[in-house]
Design a protein around this nucleic acid. Structure first.
Length: 557
RNA sequence: GUCCCUGUAGCUCAGACUGGAUAGAGCAUUUGCCUUCUAAGCAAAGGGUCGGCCGUUCGACUCGGCCCAGGGACGCCA
C-alpha cells in the first residue's frame, strides 16, 4: 500500500543522505508527506527546508544537492521502477512522482484482498470493550443514545477490522434510585387507571409510555381493583417496568442494526460482596478515608479536582462505588482496553473514573472515555426542545421510523463525535441534492449499474494489467483507493469513525469525476476491461467502508 | 469562581498524529452539461483580516502566552 512505500522510501532516503554527507552533520529525519496537489507529486520531502539552519545554506541549493543524492541512490533498488521523477520546487520542497505501475499495485492488492482490503493485524487480538448507550431502563432511547450507538457500533466494526477483538456492551443500571422512581411512577399511573387518585413522586417519570406500561401491568397481573393493586409488592412495578423497557430498548437497537455482544446488569456485578471487596482493596491501598461520617475516595491522588464520596453518611453508597466495581469487573474479564462512550452530561465524571482505574492498578491510558456530543433535532427548520423528565423528546424509534436506518446512521456519523450535530429530519428524508446522505451510496449503485451493462456486453474486467489507465482522473482514483488503510489507522488513533466517513465522501467524489469524464464501457475492449476493473476496485473499497460504518451498500437507488 | 470544548466563506463544517506550497467541501446564489454505463451526478463563477493581539520559526489555521465571544461540566444525584 501507499503508506508502506512511503515509509520504506523515507528510510532509504535518510540512509542515502547519511552515506553521502560528512558523518558529523546531524540532520532532522526525512519525512515524506502526501501533498495536497497533484502537481506536487505523490510524496513530498521538506528535509531541505529543515536542514537549512544546520547546513547554513539556502534551502533551494540544499534541495538541488539532495535531489542528486536521492536520484543516484535509487539505482539498482526496488524503488527504481517506482519513482518516475524527483523535482525541486520553491521554496525547497523535493517532490517524488510515482510511475503508473507503482500505482497499479494498489489495484492488484485490492483484487487480492477483496472484502478484506484494509484489514490488518494491528490490534494483535487484543480484547477491547466498547461500552455504549447504557441508558437507564427508565424510558425509550433518545436521539442522544442513537448517536452514541451509531458511533460505538462503527468504532467496534473498525477495531475488529484492524485486528482487535471488540465487544459491544450495554451496562444496565437496574439498581439505583432512578429505577425506584420508575416503579413508583408506574404504580401511580396504575392507580389512576383504576379510578384512584394519585400524584407522581417528585422527579417521577411523566412520559405517556408510563401509562402504557401501567395498563399492561394491570392486564398481565390480573389486577382489577384498587385494593388488589395495593396488595402488589412495590418491587413488582419496578421489575415489570425494567423488563418492559429493556425489551423495547433491545428491539430499537436491533432495528437500528446495532447488536450488543454483552448485556451486563448492575445488580449482578455490583453485589454486596463485590462492593465490600472493592472497599477492602481500596482501603488496603490507602485510597479511602472517613470524613464527616462519610467514606471518601482519594481521587485527587490521581489528578481529580476533589475527593469523592463513595459511602454517604447515611450508610448508602454513591453511584461511583458500583461503577468502580463494574470497571474492576471489566479488567478481570481480560479487556486490555476499555472504551466508554458517554453523553456530554457525564463529562465531569471522567477524572474520577480514570482515578478509579488507576487506583485499581491500571494505566490511565487503558481507559478511554469518549464524549459524544448531542444532536440538535430540527423539524421544519426549527430546533425541537427536549426534556427527558417531561417525556418530551425525539426517540430513536421515531428517527428510525421517520427517516430510516441508513439516513439516520449517516447523519449521526457526519461530524466528529465531539462536535455538535444538527439533524434536520426533513432534510434527511429528502431525495434532492441538498441531502448529503446518498452521495456515497450513489457511487456504489452506479458501479453496480456499470457491471450490469458490462455483462450485457460480455465484457470481463482485467485484474492483472492496467497499463492503459493513465488519465489524471484514473490515477487520482487509484491513489485515493490506496489511502484507505491509512484512514482506518486514523480512525483507530482518534477513536472516531468520522475520518472514514469523510474519506468515503472524498472517494465518491473522485469516482463521480472519473465517471463523468470517462466512459467505462466503450469501443476499446482493452481499455474498457481495465476501467471496469478500476470501477470495481472502487466498489470494493466503498463497500468495505460503508459496511464498517453500518451503512448499506445499495445496488440501485 | 475553577476546569473543559468551540470560534475558518451567507449557513453547516473539514483541515489528525507530525507547522509547509494558491486554506478546502457541502448547502444556498448564478451559469453550463442527459440520442451513450443512474442528473441522488459533473463543470464553472462569486464569496475568507482562519475571533483579536503578542511570541517561537526560514515558514503559523496548526505550537506557546494573554485577551474577547459562545457553549458545557463542576452534588454525600444517577
Amino acid at each position: 500500500m501507499l503508506s508502506d512505500l512511503r515509509a520504506q522510501l523515507a528510510k532509504h532516503l535518510e540512509e542515502s543522505l547519511k552515506r553521502k554527507l560528512p558523518s558529523d552533520t546531524v540532520l532532522p529525519p526525512v519525512e515524506l508527506d502526501f501533498p495536497a496537489q497533484r502537481l506536487h507529486g505523490e510524496f513530498s520531502a521538506n528535509i531541505a527546508l529543515k536542514s537549512a539552519k544546520v547546513l547554513r545554506k539556502a534551502p533551494l541549493a540544499i534541495a538541488e544537492e539532495f535531489r542528486g543524492i536521492f536520484q543516484d541512490s535509487l539505482a539498482h533498488t526496488p524503488f527504481q521502477d517506482k519513482i518516475a521523477k524527483i523535482e525541486v520546487k520553491n521554496p525547497g520542497f523535493i517532490n517524488f512522482f510515482l510511475t503508473p505501475p507503482a500505482l497499479f499495485e494498489i489495484l492488484e492488492e485490492i483484487f487480492k484482498a477483496k472484502n478484506d482490503y484494509g484489514r490488518s493485524d494491528r490490534g494483535r487480538g487484543q480484547k477491547v470493550q466498547v461500552e455504549v448507550v447504557s441508558a437507564n431502563p427508565t424510558g425509550p432511547l433518545s436521539v442522544a443514545h442513537a448517536r452514541q450507538a451509531a458511533v460505538g457500533d462503527a468504532l467496534a466494526h473498525i477495531l475488529d477490522f484492524l485486528g482487535f477483538k471488540a465487544t459491544r456492551e450495554y451496562y444496565i443500571n437496574d439498581g439505583g434510585n432512578q429505577i425506584n422512581l420508575l416503579g413508583e411512577s408506574i404504580r401511580c399511573r396504575a392507580i389512576e387507571l383504576l379510578g384512584g387518585q394519585s400524584t407522581l413522586p417528585e422527579n417521577g417519570y411523566q412520559g405517556e409510555y408510563i401509562k402504557d406500561i401501567a395498563r399492561e401491568f394491570i392486564t398481565r397481573a390480573g389486577v382489577k381493583t384498587l385494593d388488589a393493586l395495593a396488595g402488589q409488592d412495590p418491587v413488582n412495578f419496578r421489575n415489570y417496568g425494567v423488563d418492559y423497557l429493556l425489551s423495547v430498548i433491545r428491539k430499537d437497537l436491533e432495528d437500528f442494526n446495532v447488536r450488543f455482544e454483552c448485556w451486563t446488569n448492575e445488580t449482578k456485578v455490583a453485589t454486596k460482596d463485590n462492593i465490600a471487596a472493592v472497599l477492602k482493596l481500596l482501603g488496603e491501598k490507602g485510597f479511602l478515608y472517613e470524613k464527616d461520617g462519610a467514606l471518601w475516595f482519594k481521587s485527587t491522588h490521581f489528578g481529580d479536582d476533589k475527593d469523592r464520596v463513595v459511602r454517604k453518611s447515611d450508610g448508602s453508597h454513591t453511584y461511583l462505588l458500583p461503577d468502580i466495581v463494574y470497571h474492576k469487573n471489566k479488567y478481570e474479564r481480560g479487556f486490555t482496553r476499555i472504551i466508554n462512550i458517554w453523553g456530554p452530561d457525564h463529562h465531569g465524571y471522567i477524572p474520577r473514573i480514570k482515578a478509579a482505574a488507576q487506583a485499581l492498578g491500571k494505566s490511565p491510558d487503558s481507559l478511554n472515555v469518549l464524549i459524544v456530543q448531542l444532536a440538535t433535532i430540527y423539524r421544519d427548520g426549527k430546533p425541537v426542545s427536549m426534556s427527558t423528565r417531561r417525556g418530551e423528546f425525539i426517540s430513536l424509534r421515531e428517527v428510525i421510523d421517520e427517516v430510516g436506518v441508513d439516513a439516520a446512521r449517516f447523519f449521526f456519523l457526519m461530524r466528529h463525535i465531539d462536535a455538535h450535530l444538527d439533524f434536520d429530519l426533513e432534510l434527511a428524508k429528502k431525495e434532492t441534492p441538498e441531502n448529503p446522505v446518498y452521495y456515497i451510496q450513489y457511487a456504489h449503485a452506479r458501479i453496480h449499474s456499470i457491471n450490469k451493462k458490462a455483462q450485457e456486453a460480455c465484457l470481463k474486467q482485467r485484474e492483472n494489467s492496467f497499463s492503459l489507465l493513465n488519465a489524471p482522473e484514473e490515477l487520482d482514483l487509484i491513489k485515493k483507493l490506496g489511502s484507505f488503510p491509512d484512514i482506518l489507522s486514523v480512525c483507530c488513533h482518534e477513536l472516531d469513525p468520522y475520518a472514514l466517513m469523510q474519506y468515503l465522501h472524498e472517494l465518491a467524489m473522485v469516482f463521480h469525476k472519473f465517471y463523468d469524464q470517462h466512459r467505462v464501457i466503450g469501443d476499446d475492449k482493452d481499455l474498457s476491461a481495465e476501467r471496469l476493473a478500476l470501477a470495481n476496485a472502487t466498489k470494493i473499497v466503498l463497500a468495505n467502508g460503508l459496511r464498517l460504518l453500518g451503512l448499506s451498500t445499495p445496488e440501485r437507488m
